[in-house]
């Protein structure tokens, strides 16, 4: 029950974030959605994710506020709103159609298929020595995924530095 309430809170926060005119209020509303997601992870029994989501959400908010502050923005109302709206609704309708067919195949909520996870839980402590199964998966069973994640993170940081840098290299 509390999970549904948190999800409803997130949906309302997202609607406010999309619909409100002021950009700073919009950023703060999306921060509320992220904190709601953190609470939802806690209810869904994922404490590691809840902690990570909290930290990441706060950093994300700081970055977005840095981008929006001190920039006056004229509101844009004109343009091809009819064409845009029709195209948007078409995309959302096709997405919902695919989602309907996918939902028919999914197992019911609360009954996961734990074919792979069963062996990880049963042998995790003996094979890796970690009491936290999530930590044993990301650092041991699927260590190459984590290596790829570190590569993506490093590449993104290099990209940010290359874009933000004020002075380029001077040619001789």
């Amino acid at each position: 029950m509390e999970l549904k309430l948190i999800l409803l809170f997130m949906v309302f926060g997202a609607v406010i974030a999309v619909k409100i005119e002021d950009l700073l209020s919009s950023v703060i509303a999306v921060g509320a959605v992220g904190l709601g997601l953190s609470m939802a992870f806690l209810v869904l029994k994922a404490p590691d994710l809840a902690i990570t989501q909290l930290v990441v959400e706060i950093l994300c908010l700081i970055i977005l506020i840095r981008a929006t502050i001190n920039k006056d923005l004229p509101l844009i109302k004109d343009g091809r709103w009819f064409f845009n709206t029709v195209a948007t609704l078409l995309f959302i309708a096709s997405f919902l159609m695919f989602a309907y067919f996918a939902l028919l195949e999914l197992p019911d909520f609360g009954k996961p298929i734990m074919r792979v996870a069963g062996s990880y839980i049963a042998n995790g402590l003996a094979k890796t020595g970690a009491a936290n199964i999530v930590a044993s998966i990301i650092l041991d069973f699927r260590g190459y995924d984590t290596l790829g994640e570190a590569t993506v993170l490093f590449t993104a940081v290099i990209g940010v530095l290359a874009i933000i840098r004020k002075v380029g290299r001077i040619k001789k």
Binding site: L64, V116, V134
Partner: peptide
């Protein structure tokens, strides 16, 4: 126990999301 594999994947995905957001915001500021 709940399924730990989606949690491990999402832990990776959250951190990558932060990096991607930082990259997009840098491009927007430029």
């Amino acid at each position: 126990m709940v399924d730990p594999i989606p949690q491990a994947l999402v832990l990776t995905s959250i951190v990558i999301g932060l990096a991607v957001t930082a990259l997009i915001v840098a491009i927007a500021i430029r």
